[in-house]
Design a protein around this nucleic acid. Structure first.
Length: 153
DNA sequence: GCCAACGTTGGC
DNA sequence: GCCAACGTTGGC
């Protein structure tokens, strides 16, 4: 299957690119949005490229590159009443929420800021540059990926 | 801290 | 099934 590309948001106060660098691999738990879940559950394949995006910080932007290390499986944090993302709707026999494993590839030398992304020709179609975009997992086109990879240098 | 945008919930 | 109220996200 052809390699696909994604942008995944995280608040660095909760989990940053440096946390991923230290851990190497992490499970992307806590996603509680159906559209984002569907992308993870149905479309992500091992080896897909990931833009690791820092949200809710100044400045927001792409902080590094990662790769999908494991396809989706049940997000067990939904079953834990003590977890902040606990969801009683999700049953073990019929899980509502899913996660994937994400592996560190590299950090950006400098954050590629949202402002820069908005100014870059060819990235107009990216979800993250659109006004009011809140989806935490979004597909990235091959073209957009290539443009952004050039900015990593 | 503010608030626009958006998703979810629940009464009807 | 509609839609107002509410909660969350996330840029600024």
């Amino acid at each position: 299957m052809k390699r696909k590309y994604w942008l995944m948001k995280s608040e660095p106060s909760a989990y940053s690119i440096s946390d991923l660098e230290r851990e190497n691999v992490t499970c992307w738990d806590g996603v509680r949005n159906y559209q984002a879940r569907n992308f993870m559950r149905d479309d992500m394949q091992k080896g897909d490229g990931v833009l690791f995006y820092h949200s809710n910080i100044v400045p927001p932007g792409i902080a590094g590159e990662a790769v999908i290390a494991k396809t989706s499986y049940s997000d067990y944090t939904a079953w834990d009443p003590k977890d902040p993302h606990y969801d009683p709707k999700s049953r073990r026999e019929r899980p509502t929420w899913f996660m994937v494993d994400v592996q560190f590839v590299r950090k950006c030398r400098e954050i590629i800021t949202l402002a820069q992304l908005k100014e870059t020709d060819g990235l107009e179609g990216m979800e993250v540059v659109k006004r009011g975009s809140r989806l935490s997992v979004t597909p990235v086109s091959q073209e957009a990926w290539n443009i952004i990879m050039r900015k990593f240098r």
